[in-house]
Every structure is written in C-alpha cells, then in structure tokens.
Design a protein around this nucleic acid. Structure first.
Lengths: 143, 143
DNA sequence: ACTAAAATATGATAAAAATCATTTTTAGGA
DNA sequence: TCCTAAAAATGATTTTTATCATATTTTAGT
C-alpha cells in the first residue's frame, strides 16, 4: 500500500511536527534515532521533502530540519506523492491500464469505494491535525 | 497494495475460471499470452497456487491448468495469501509493530475501517462470483 | 517400451527498492 | 577570514522482487 519510504517519511514528518519549529531545528541523527530509521536513508527522504517544500531545512551550523506553520498545513498525501510519486494509489487494483467506471476491472466495483475513501482521507488530513492526535494521546508513534 | 505477482495470479485464475474446467485444461503459454504476463513467470505462480490447491493441474500430454468446482469456491484473498503471504494486508499502515485499537498509530483510526472492509471483501468474494461478473459483462479483463 | 508434450523444479539474471558511504556546499561563530 | 557543523548531492552496495533459462519428471498416445 505505502512503500517503506513513504512510511518512514510520514513518521519523520510527524516527529518534526512534534519536536521542531522555526526556532528549534533538528538534525538528521536526532530524527533517525527515535523513529528507528537508518540515518543516511531518512536524510535522503528529508532532502526530497525539503526540495518540494513539504518540510523546511537550513544548512550549516545551527542548521537542521523543521516544520514551518505553512508546512504543517500540507496533507499527508502530499508526503506520499513526493516520495512514491502518486502512482501507487491511483492505479487499478489489478494494474489494468484501462480501468474506470465504464470498463471496470473485476475488483473495481467492490474495492474502489473503499480505496477512494482512503485517498480522500489522506488528502484531507493535515500534518498538523495528525500531530495533534498524538499530542492529545489519542494516537501513538512507537518504534 | 497488491504485489505485481498477486495481480498476475488473480488475472490468471480468473482467466482459468472463464476458460477451463476438469475436461478442458489450458497450458501455460495459452494463459500467459492473453493475460499478457511472461510465460515462465506466470508458470511459477501457477505452480505455487497448484501446490496449495487453489487451482488444479495435471502434467504430461493433454495436461494443463484448470479449475475444479471446489477451486472456484476459494476466495480471492486465498490467492493473495498464497502468493504474497498475507503480511501486506494485515500490517499497520505505518508498519509499527504495536498498532491496534488500544495503541493505534496516527493513521489507524481514520484508515483502518476502510482497509478492514477491503480485506473482508476480498475474503468473501469467491473466484466463481468474480468470474461471473465478467461473464455477465459487468466487469472486464483487458490487457 | 518409446516419444513427445506437458507441468515441475531449480537456479541464474535483471530491475527496482532500500541502504550505506563519500564528497560538496552552506552558514554561523571564533 | 577561516574553521566547523550541518544539509545536500552523488553514487555505490545490498536486498528484494520480478524475470528468464534450463533441466527434470510425469503422462498420454503410438
């Protein structure tokens, strides 16, 4: 469903949402350790997200990654799109090229409604909202 | 979501549902071509399915793959389980080891209901039922 | 029995995804 | 200005997934 990379990225962004702001930057090694993802690997993902303005970064001394207020307004889907390139979600369950309401694959009718709801949710939930759930103790981010 | 292998396998099984029975066996090359999957590759998948009694086969002259009446009663999920090994579906959206109702990951609450419905559907739809949809012209199996 | 046609088994190769290592650029502080 | 700490860039390696190739067994027909 989600690639490992997307999962890592979401975890890292949530970690940043909870532990950073424009005054308080966090460097990769202090992100990679608590979320339990190899440092060099998460660094690459963060750079990609930063280039697409999903997260912010500054380099050099006192540098690090962080989330601005604007960053926090982005949807969870935007993270996935940057990392996985949206292909995964929008494609047919059986990977038939031509699969839509008119010419649905055998699984389309039963599964598409659910899938489409998942997509809609991921598009509508913002980083900020999701982080709030963790702050309120309604959700957890272990390992 | 589904691995390429699972998708191939489902297509092949549906093809067999539509084009074979215990009197009419089909050999790999006559399956691989219409469903557009490399012959040697689909052969491996079919062998795996055959070993787990999802489909039937007989070798030697006049041999081939086919679906018995019992085979057709199997669920679509059973195909996926044989090929992918069920890991993919039952795991948390963020791959956290500990993620359940008590200690949900941030995406659990919003997405689990949909995912769980998808799983339930795949478990309840039989091969026969899905093939019927294609026969009735309600669903298509192109490419 | 023999042969040819089929699945089955095994292992090799290729492609993609994930991980690791090294170098370069940038910016703050002495 | 120069040193150092950080991200950014680049590219190499490993692992997993997908694909290909070859040999082995089984079975029907002669």
């Amino acid at each position: 469903m989600l690639s490992k990379s997307s999962k890592y990225a979401i975890k890292a962004v949530l970690f940043l949402a909870l532990n950073s702001n424009d005054k308080k930057k966090v460097m990769v090694k202090d992100i990679s350790e608590p979320i339990n993802v190899p440092q060099a690997y998460i660094a690459k993902l963060l750079q990609k997200l930063s280039r697409q303005n999903i997260i912010s970064s500054s380099r050099g001394r006192k540098g690090g990654f962080y989330l601005s207020d604007n960053n926090r307004k982005q949807s969870i889907m935007s993270i996935i799109e940057v990392i996985d390139g949206e292909k995964n979600f929008n494609s047919c369950m059986l990977s038939l090229k031509e699969c839509d309401e008119d010419k649905p694959c055998p699984l389309h009718k039963t599964l598409y409604p659910f899938k489409s709801n998942i997509i809609r949710n991921l598009e509508s939930i913002s980083i900020k909202e999701l982080a709030l759930e963790v702050e309120l103790g309604n959700a957890f981010l272990p390992l």
